[in-house]
Each structure stands twice: as C-alpha cells, then as structure tokens.
Design a protein around this nucleic acid. Structure first.
Length: 302
DNA sequence: AGGATAGCCTGCGGGC
DNA sequence: TGCCCGCAGGCTATCC
C-alpha cells in the first residue's frame, strides 16, 4: 500500500487539481466502502456478518462534500482528508487504493473496483473533471464527516505524530514506555504501529532501520538516546527523499495523475533478502518480524 | 494492558 | 495454457 511518501504525492497531485472547485455530484458505487458516523466504526467490511448483510442506511451526500467548494487536502500519516466548506471526507488507501483525478475528456480510469466518484465543476458551473476512488483489494475506505473538526477528532487524534515531522525528542516521547510492560516489543513493530508514529509501513520501516544501523528485532526499551536520535533522523531523511522521488511503485501505486514513483530503485534492504548488502557485501537476512517480512543486514545493523 | 494473532480481499508470479 | 499456491505496501477486533 501507499505509505506516507506515496500518500503525500497523491495529496499534492489531487490538491493541485481540485482545490477551489465545487463538488457538483457524488456517486457511491459500493456503499460498504463508505463510512459515516452512524456506521460501524471499523467500517462495514469488519462489521459482524449479520450487520453487513442488512441493507445499509442511505448516505446523506452533503457529508460526501456534495455542494461544497474544496478548501484543502490534508494528510496525517497515511490518512488523507478533503476539507470542504462544511463537510470533510477522510480517505484511506489501504494496500491497493487509488485516488485519481481526470479532467474532462482525458483518458479513462480502469473501471474495475471503482467505489466512489465525485464530479467537480468550476465556480461558474462549467464541469471540470472527475475524482475517483478505486481499491481492488478493498482494504481502504472513505469516511464521511460533518466537519473538519469531527474528522480530526475521530480519525487523526488517535494517531501518533506524523512521521515527516518526527525529531529525536518526539520519537523518544512516542516510544517511551508508559509502564513496565511497555517497550518489550520490537522497534520494527513500534514503527509500524500508527498510534506510535503515523505514516511508516513495511518498506520505510526496513529502510530507516538499515540507515540507522539498528536491528529490527531490538526491543524498544533497549534503544539508547543516540540510537533513537539516529533513527528519527533516518526516518525524516528517507521519507523526504522518497517524496521527492515520487514514492515507491512496486506494483500498481500511482499518484493522482497516474504517475508512478521511482524510489523503489533506491531501496537498500526492502525486497532484497538474500542479495548483497550495499554497504558490506554480505548476504541480507530476511525473516518475519512483527508478522511482516523484514530484511536487514546482520553485520551492519546492531 | 500491551502485544501477538487471524482475517479481511484481489491479483500476480512461480512452479508444476 | 491453466491451475494451485504463496505472497503482497495495512488495519481491526480478538484473544492471551
């Protein structure tokens, strides 16, 4: 899935296209991909089956920005939000989600797995284009809120600090044990936990740990202040460079204009298990840590 | 209460 | 060519 750099590229490309336009219409193609405050909090796909099979309440399209002018697109971690005059829509891309903008009469989007379509118009009423949310694997979703305030309270407040803003102090704060039993989990698990730091996924966790020469299986509480500082700087450096490179395209990630990224060519460990370490030439290890395939160098990382 | 697990989905590549 | 298997960028409820 898109991690922070990819979501940021989507944000930038879509913001450029739709800020200031008016939402003239909304079509929901799959009701269970949209969540309102009245719906089950985890989304319909995770609701109990009895609830899932029942007919769903109709969505008030005002909550999906109908009639609103687009004020801004914002991001916290991997979460995206479109803020209108009144309503606010949260978008999560999951693993295979895409948010695509097509100006009128530009090449069409693959029609499979399109769940939501917004029609956009200029302020004088002339049609401008279409914003499309599609997600083949349906791990993502759209959350409709009455206001920016409500969206932020419900969806962003529980998250840790955005990984692009992390610094040695804030990372130490996020990782600091709140009780005796905290800190036993691996640093890799902590980085993947969006409630600890928001925006890092499997790719950038492995890359940041390699860059800071820390083994992914180290318990959080074994890290000293210098290591945490180093890790914080590595996270910022890697994410910033990845944004500049358009993100990592492994299979199907593209930004809002359909452009792929190139940071996958700069990966030093992710996807390179069994290959040579770029620094020392030894074979990179690959194993499951925190339930995810994890690649690291036994000799460079301590 | 923190931390590890299963499960949600589709699609792709590799092996036979 | 086609089938089956394993695997994939995330997150949540659930259990221990």
């Amino acid at each position: 899935m898109p991690e922070l750099p990819e979501v940021e590229r989507v944000r930038l490309s879509i913001a450029r296209a739709i800020t200031g336009l008016r939402v003239s219409g909304v079509t929901v193609h799959r009701r269970d991909m949209v969540c309102t405050p009245q719906d089950p909090p985890g989304g319909w796909s995770r609701a109990p089956e009895a609830l899932r099979l029942r007919p769903k309440p109709r969505i008030n399209k005002t909550l999906l920005l109908q009639g609103d002018r687009v004020r801004s697109l914002d991001r916290h971690g991997k979460q995206l939000a479109i803020f209108g005059d009144r309503a606010a829509v949260g978008i999560h891309l999951g693993m295979t989600g895409q948010l695509l903008y097509r100006a009128l009469e530009s090449r069409p989007v693959n029609p499979d797995h399109i769940h939501l379509t917004w029609r956009l118009a200029h302020l004088d009423g002339r049609p401008a284009g279409t914003l499309i949310f599609r997600d083949p694997r349906r791990f993502g979703g759209v959350w409709a809120h009455e206001s920016a305030h409500q969206l932020i309270a419900a969806r962003w407040q529980p998250l840790g600090p955005d990984a692009l803003t992390i610094n040695p102090d804030s990372l130490a704060d996020s990782l600091r044990p709140a009780s005796q039993s905290v800190g036993t989990r691996s640093v890799k698990a902590a980085l993947l936990d969006q409630h600890t730091v928001a925006g890092i996924g499997n790719i950038y966790a492995d890359e940041a740990l390699f860059e800071s020469r820390i083994r992914p299986d180290r318990p959080v509480r074994s890290l000293d202040q210098d290591e945490i500082s180093c890790l914080a700087q590595a996270i910022r450096r890697i994410l910033t460079e990845a944004v500049e490179q358009g993100g990592s395209t492994l299979r199907d990630y593209v930004d809002g204009d359909g452009e792929a990224g190139s940071f996958q060519n700069k990966h030093k460990v992710y996807g390179r298990g069994g290959l040579m370490c770029i620094t020392c030439g030894r074979t990179l290890r690959s194993d499951t840590i925190a339930q995810r395939t994890t690649v690291w160098c036994d000799s460079c990382q301590r």
